[in-house]
């Protein structure tokens, strides 16, 4: 039930071994190892400063100074960046310059190699933003922008979606819609999802696996096991006291 150190397994599409990161001498990730199998829906939980975003930055090649190895589709990401075309990423805080002169449609097609406007429309439809497609990105609310970025992550039909707290700033109704979309992407389109969240309830409802992170990985396994293990939950809430997070 604890950290899975089973070594190379070819059903693993992501394989992280002994990942450690420090910022000027201070360790923020310490010896993290886990894998993601095809079709997994992995919720990554951990308090502020736990290292979730840092982990994602390493996985996506945004941070190259780390110890250990990260493999996508069996290949070390230090050797090739090709895997990125199969990965959609929604960053924690997308910064949008209010004056940036681009429509939502243009923002989505920036990440496309071809100018396939049908895919752009489809992706926008998935987040209910197609009616606003010709609005300027800076004119949207933060929550609407977040939805655009989710659509942007979907536009190239990725095999893996990496979401760093994607629903911050989205209202309850749209959060539920969004969770529904994630579920469908995972079950129907077989997209593997890696999702960092502070929302334990949502993680319990949606994720099939859970990784609990706070500098070290102190749980990685089946979601049900985590949420039915009171010891684990207690340990989790102790480490995240400062976050005022309670599991009901």
């Amino acid at each position: 039930m604890f950290i899975n150190n089973s070594g190379v397994d070819f059903t693993m599409i992501v394989d992280i071994q002994k990942l450690s990161v420090d910022y000027s001498g201070i360790k923020v990730l310490d010896d993290i190892s886990f894998g993601i199998a095809e079709g997994d829906f992995l919720g990554i939980i951990g308090p502020n400063g736990a290292g979730k975003s840092t982990l994602f930055h390493c996985m996506l090649g945004l941070r190259t100074q780390y110890d250990g190895t990260i493999k996508f589709f069996g290949q070390d990401i230090r050797d090739s960046r090709k895997y990125l075309s199969q990965v959609g990423f929604v960053p924690q805080k997308p910064v949008v310059d209010r004056n940036f002169p681009a429509t939502i449609r243009e923002v989505l097609s920036m990440s496309q190699n071809s100018s396939d406007s049908k895919k752009v429309d489809e992706a926008l439809q998935k987040v209910w933003m197609h009616e606003l497609a010709d609005r300027r990105i800076g004119d949207l609310s933060v929550g609407q922008q977040q939805r655009v970025f989710i659509a942007k992550a979907l536009v190239n039909s990725p095999k893996i979606l990496v979401l760093d707290e994607p629903v911050t700033g989205i209202d309850q109704y749209n959060q539920d819609l969004f969770f529904q979309i994630l579920g469908e992407l995972n079950t129907k389109e077989k997209i593997s999802i890696i999702w960092a969240s502070h929302d334990l309830d949502a993680v319990e409802r949606l994720a099939s696996k859970v990784a609990c992170l706070n500098k070290t990985l102190f749980f990685h396994g089946i979601s049900k096991e985590f949420f039915s293990d009171d010891e684990m939950l207690k340990k989790y809430s102790e480490t995240s006291m400062q976050m005022h997070m309670h599991h009901h």
Partner: peptide, 18 residues
């Protein structure tokens, strides 16, 4: 221009899409 525009729009996201 698409690539330059994307890197201008968001360096982080552009980098993460290769």
């Amino acid at each position: 221009y698409k690539k330059i525009l994307y890197s201008t729009f968001s360096e982080e996201q552009a980098k993460a899409s290769g």
